[in-house]
Amino acid sequence: MTAPLLDVRGLKVAARLGDRAHPILKEVSFQIMPGEAYGLVGESGSGKSVTSLAVMGLLKKPLRVAGGEILFKGQDLLQLSKREMRRLRGNRVAMIFQEPMTALNPLSTVGRQIAEMFVLHQGKGWDEAQRLAVDALASVRVPNPDRRARNFPHQMSGGLRQRVMIAMALACNPDLLIADEPTTALDVTVQAEVLRLIKELCAERGTAVLFISHDLGVIASTCQRVGVMYSGCLVEENETQALFGDPRHEYTRGLLGALPRLGSRSQHGRQRLVDIDSIISDRSKLTETRFIAPRAAEGGQP
């Protein structure tokens, strides 16, 4: 039985405003196995992005961790010093964001920015790092990687920039990739290509993925297991197939009913979508029930 790569236990995050601490995450627990793609889905304000920032150790004031553990390969990330955390980021845990333009340095070529990862985390010399950077661009299927390595971020399209981000994130073969709404800003056909790329590359290299998205379709097409977040709580978690096929929590059911589905109009005619507020009696009680399905293969506790 394998140990989980990432084991988040009872994670609490609070926002301190004045003298009062407002709970933002209320005891969130989930595990990601090595090589597994795990999705967190939820609406804005559900706490899915805060969870990813907490794992990366990137929470900004007034947010701070108020309790719980984040075990990465058995080591509690919350106990690490800033310096140890920095060494981990980009090396063992990497992250890609929604807007690649803000995450890339506009004044430096993309080749140099990728090469920097090798210099910083693997102690490579610049010449070798530059060569590795071109290889990394080729691995994310950027055409003409030699020429593209000399481009500045603004000379690239949104889709290409996101590929560069993926190349940077995967440069040091991290164990875990955190993808926070990586395709929200992209056109649909580009989104499909980028999602396929992330899926295939991570499967090839055995990289685990924590995928954050508001888009149920994106999560369904990329992840093996899914957690549904609402108001700072993980309200339901299950294998993707089971979760979308047989949602147990009323919020998950509401969300799935609210989604216009391709093909449903030709089967059922044009019906009104489910209004989540009409099927949920009391939103404040939503987080009282939780459906966390046991992991099928491991059968409970790891």
Partner: peptide
């Protein structure tokens, strides 16, 4: 949506991330 003719239309439809299609519960 049921009989798209142009390759671009087909590409667009194929690119939609849709939970049903992703889980192959309904063949597109």
């Amino acid at each position: 949506f049921e009989t798209p003719a142009h390759p671009y239309t087909r590409r667009l439809i194929a690119a939609i991330p849709d939970p049903d299609v992703a889980l192959r519960r309904s063949e597109r």
